[in-house]
């Protein structure tokens, strides 16, 4: 049985997927995850979940973010000096997400054109 492994580096962080292990049960999956994925990397906690229990939708099936222009949903569209630092921070996070989404889209389009 395959178990997907999620590793949390520090307390309070998110658990991020880091790989999988082959193990007969949850207890051994945790043990294998520990030696395979937390041997050197700093680790605070590990999760394992049976691979079959994980649902997935990817770019083959979905157009994430929709197919129409949704610029009205982005803080960067509204050209005002941020009222407070937290508004600025949120705008920066959105600008970064928008930038990375566009890079990803261009990459996908380039691949599709091959």
């Amino acid at each position: 049985m395959i178990w997907e492994v999620f590793r949390q580096e520090n307390a309070g962080d998110y658990h991020e997927h880091c790989g999988n292990v082959h193990a007969p049960d949850r207890e051994m999956a945790l043990m294998f995850a520990e030696v395979q994925h937390a041997r050197r990397k700093p680790t605070n906690s590990l999760w394992v979940a049976p691979k079959d229990e994980i649902g997935e939708v990817d770019t083959e099936d979905a157009k994430f973010g929709g197919t129409t222009d949704k610029s009205y949903r982005w803080a960067v569209t509204y050209d005002f000096e941020a009222a407070a630092s937290e508004v600025e921070e949120s705008t920066d996070e959105q600008a970064e997400a928008d930038r990375r989404r566009k890079v990803q889209q261009e990459k996908q389009e380039a691949q599709g054109g091959d």
Binding site: R73, Y78, F80, A82, A83, E86, V87, E88, S90, E93
Partner: peptide
């Protein structure tokens, strides 16, 4: 907070 910046600016 990630989403809220849009609300305030809008």
């Amino acid at each position: 907070c990630f989403e809220e910046g849009f609300h305030v600016k809008h």
